[in-house]
Design a protein around this nucleic acid. Structure first.
Length: 829
RNA sequence: GCCCGGGUGGUGGAACUGGUAGACACAAGGGACUUAAAAUCCCUUGGAACUUGUUUCCGUGCGGGUUCGAUUCCCGCCCCGGGCACCA
């Protein structure tokens, strides 16, 4: 009987489903293990990236279950998002219909891969029973001051008439129509992630070890904490002041002018009614017309314009002209920068260009700097000069001293500044969770009543892709009453960023159908946190940071008791083909459906695991999957040929009667169990685990035609083959269950315990000792394990090739590393 | 510029904590089976040299160093990938 993957796989998928094999319940007698892979966007069909991600997860889930853990392994759909609207624009299919049809198809594809999901926990984030709770969280956050509305600059595409997320701006152009993206002021809802910046940063240390360092460093970077000083500069002649953030308070005496971001609100007030008003406002407008991408590139020409106003340096009393400068960012620090041209390269260039004074306040020890001859700013450490009472100090010491001086004067304080900005979650889109707020003429902005949730997304909306959110045309949706005064009010028409849904779905999986509250606390307490999370590196910052933030918010709202959602994180590499990421335009896309049809789900899974370790990019190879398929055929034939001789045979425990001809196989079996267990458990190195099982198969092929017809010898083979099949089952579950039955067993291997190795058999009794003379390999010795040094030395020295290289020279030293190497050092080299 | 990864045969990749570099697989070549092909099974396969061996020399991006011994540790470079970046 030949290996026919399709019939084997469909048979077992049916049986697993009939027996509810993958269903999980809380069981306090067992240790829990929550394994989660990032849920997919239902784009239409699964791609190789999904297959790889979910295969890795499935191996771990099945392995842990066989190890006796109570495993939670859920799956669902990140179902809101723009592609559904694009499909509606292109083909007129309503987003809801399009999304749920895609989900149905993709679910069938995942089932066809044999993944062990508890499908009873499935949900889609576009289900009202899901986003209802998100709307509740929004209201709770609003009440706690963690949500606010603010006018801010957003990416705006004037052709599409819509706001774009940062990730939808590609090289300064709209990803959809290719036109220039501009900055536009817009009212947006924000989540106050900055309130958690310090905790998000601090807790990164807790994740160290469980998360890849790379991801942690990216998050640290993104949060971007820097310590410095807030300094106030009084305006000349008029009341008011400008605040700046600086990391270099030691250079304060060298601050000779002030630079404001074009967006800075003070700009307009400063120039109002002056003769410079037109020039300055024109400059501001010109700068704002340029897109963010150009403005933040370092090739960008530094330009500025004088406002005609001055402020006062708090320590020197000097008049500092106030400029508007195009390179000053409004959303970092205070949007204003004290310019120290002698010690900051940008300020230096700016000062040279506009003829502004340069004052040196730090000099390298024993050197003198002359502002007239300097060719660039001096940004390194040194000794303070021209700094009044602080002259002669090391600049590092001066930082704190000058800050204290400012504090005494009431003109500044030491502070911490973060690069991370609050999370703007408003999207002018239809296919998302409605923001549960209303605008009342009398009461202003009000959250809807909790008992009115969910605020359902209306159906039957015409989606044209033009203009703002289609919800703005839905009178039935917009017109409502104020929850406070009962008067007429209008609903918010923006929907939430889809990253909000993915920030808490992993908690909902613990009790996906609880409908009187967001979560069942007991179940959440049992399952959370996720023990192992698996997904692509592309989410290193956004999703993983948002989810961490949201978990902390839910903790502070009293819903969960944990600080961090994901104990361990594995970021799997991309699947590439011919050295490039798979894409339609390159024509190098491999459709998993074709692979399943040709080679079966098991061979596809096996190749995904074997071709590379999980965290590395994996090169898809058509010959490679052929090889995996061949291996399964080889395994099949091995079992098929021997099954009748092995069936019903009792394996005698510790059959130590006499000498076994097949002792080598028995040793190899236990060594393989040890290797595979450690590779999965300690390192997630599935490629080497599979390689070692291939080695065992190769060993069995060497002996299979000459197996003596003795019970003890057959028992060795039986033990080898059965353990092999058991161990292969997390990787290739269908063929494993089938082979298990062919060997005369009943039941499913997922319910079979993972094998234990016998340490005695797994241990090597004879080892190969490398013999070096003066550090070069000259021979190898097959010797008993733990051979004594003197015996090893004696044997080594009697080797012909060793003698040749020792060549009657005096042996001055012997380095012996038991069971590894013996190195003989001679007098002359 | 700063911060993380990474660089090993024709290819994907192995090598635990410094101890025989190249496991396993792909590709290639040879053989067996077959009328033939496919499939299958077996063998060879880092490079070079010769005295063809339990042989020697070279070889893990480059140059140094530490060590009896370095793919592994240290210093200095080069290249590739990713993140952050006029961040004050």
């Amino acid at each position: 009987m030949d290996y026919k993957p399709e019939s084997v796989e469909k048979k077992w998928q049916r049986l697993w489903e009939e027996q509810n094999l993958f269903r999980t319940e809380e069981d306090k007698t067992k240790e829990k293990y929550y394994l989660l892979e990032m849920f997919p966007y239902p784009s239409g069909r699964i791609h190789m990236g999904h297959v790889r991600n979910y295969t890795i997860g499935d191996v771990v889930a099945r392995y842990k279950r066989m190890k006796g853990f109570n495993v939670l392994h859920p799956m669902g759909w990140d179902a809101f998002g723009l592609p559904a609207e694009n499909a509606a624009i292109a083909s007129g299919v309503p987003p809801k219909k399009w999304t749920y049809e895609n989900i149905d198809y993709m679910r069938s594809q995942l089932k066809r891969m044999g993944f062990s999901y508890d499908w009873e926990r499935e949900f889609a984030t576009c289900d009202p029973e899901y986003y209802k709770w998100e709307q509740l969280f929004f209201i709770k956050m609003f009440e706690k001051g963690l949500v606010y509305r603010d006018r801010c600059f957003v990416n705006w595409c004037d052709r599409c008439k819509t706001v774009l997320a940062n990730e939808q701006v590609e090289g300064g152009l709209c990803w959809r129509c290719g036109s220039q993206v501009i900055l536009k002021e817009y009212d947006q809802w924000f989540f106050k992630i900055t309130a958690y910046a310090q905790e998000l940063l601090d807790d990164i240390d807790k994740l160290s070890g469980g998360w890849p360092e790379r991801v942690l460093s990216m998050q640290r970077n993104w949060i971007g904490r820097s310590t410095g000083t807030l300094v106030k500069f009084k305006l000349e002649d008029v009341p008011g002041e400008i605040e700046v953030f600086t990391t270099r308070p030691d250079t304060l005496y060298g601050a000779t002018f002030m630079s404001l971001a074009p967006e800075h609100p003070l700009v307009k007030t400063l120039v109002k009614g002056t003769d410079r008003e037109t020039e300055v406002l024109d400059f501001v407008e010109d700068t704002l017309m340029e897109d963010r991408f150009t403005r933040t590139s370092d090739q960008y020409e530094k330009k500025g314009v004088f406002t005609g106003r001055y402020c006062i340096n708090p320590v020197t009393g000097a008049k500092m002209p106030i400029y508007v400068a195009n390179f000053v960012l409004y959303d970092y620090g205070t949007g204003a920068v004290m310019a120290v041209p002698a010690h900051d390269q940008r300020d230096f260039e700016f000062a040279k260009k506009y003829g502004l004074p340069i004052i040196v306040v730090i000099e390298p020890r024993g050197e003198h700097l002359d502002p007239l001859t300097m060719e660039q700013a001096y940004e390194d450490d040194g000794i303070l000069v021209n700094s009044g009472p602080f002259n002669g100090l090391e600049n590092r010491d001066a930082m704190a001293k000058i800050t204290s001086r400012l504090e005494e004067m009431g003109m500044g304080s030491s502070t911490v500044n973060f690069r991370i900005r609050d999370w703007g979650i408003s999207r002018q889109r239809y296919w998302g969770a409605p923001i549960p707020m209303v605008y009342c003429e009398r009461c202003g902005v009000q959250p809807v009543r909790v008992e009115d949730l969910p605020i359902l997304l209306p159906e039957g909306v015409e989606i044209t892709g033009k203009g703002v959110s289609p919800l703005q045309d839905m009178e039935d949706f917009i017109n409502t009453t104020c929850p406070k005064c009962g008067g007429p009010a209008r609903r918010e028409t923006d929907t939430m960023d889809t990253f909000v849904e993915s920030s808490w779905y992993f908690i909902r999986y613990c009790s996906p159908h609880t409908n009187d509250r967001p979560f069942d606390e007991d179940k959440v307490r049992y399952w959370m946190p996720v023990d192992q999370y698996i997904g692509g590196i592309e989410h290193a910052i956004l999703h993983l940071l948002y989810a961490r933030f949201f978990t902390k918010v839910l903790r502070d709202l009293g819903y969960v008791e944990i600080d961090e959602p994901f104990g361990r994180l594995l970021t799997q590499g991309m699947v590439i083909k011919d050295g490039a990421k798979m894409s339609k335009s390159k024509g190098n896309v491999v459709d998993p459906a074709d692979m399943i049809n040709t080679y079966g789900a098991d061979a596809t899974r096996l190749f995904c695991l074997f071709a590379a370790p999980p965290e590395k990019d994996m090169d898809w190879s058509d010959q490679g999957i052929e090889g995996s398929y061949r291996f399964l055929g080889r395994l099949w034939r091995l079992v098929d040929e021997l099954k009748d001789r092995l069936k019903g045979l009792e394996v005698e425990p510790g059959s130590k009667t006499g000498k076994l001809e097949l002792e080598g196989i028995k040793k190899k079996t236990h060594q393989t169990i040890k290797k595979v267990t450690e590779d999965i458990d300690k390192r997630f190195r599935f490629n080497t685990a599979i390689a070692s099982m291939m080695e065992l198969v190769n060993e069995l092929y060497k002996v299979k035609d000459t197996i003596p017809d003795k019970r003890e010898e057959l028992a060795v083979i039986k033990e080898a083959i059965e353990n092999l099949v058991i161990m292969l089952s997390p990787f290739v579950p269908h063929i494993a269950d089938e082979l298990w039955h062919m060997l005369g067993h009943k039941g499913m291997l997922l319910e079979h315990p993972w094998p234990e190795y016998d340490a005695g058999w797994a241990e090597k009794t004879t080892i190969t000792l490398a013999v070096q003379v003066n550090g070069k390999l000259r021979a190898t010795l097959k010797v008993a394990k733990d051979i004594l040094e003197e015996d090893a030395t004696h044997m080594a020295l009697s080797e012909q090739n060793v003698k040749r290289f020792v060549n009657n020279n005096k042996v001055v030293r012997v380095i012996y590393v038991p069971n590894r190497i013996i190195n003989i050092i001679t007098a002359t080299r």
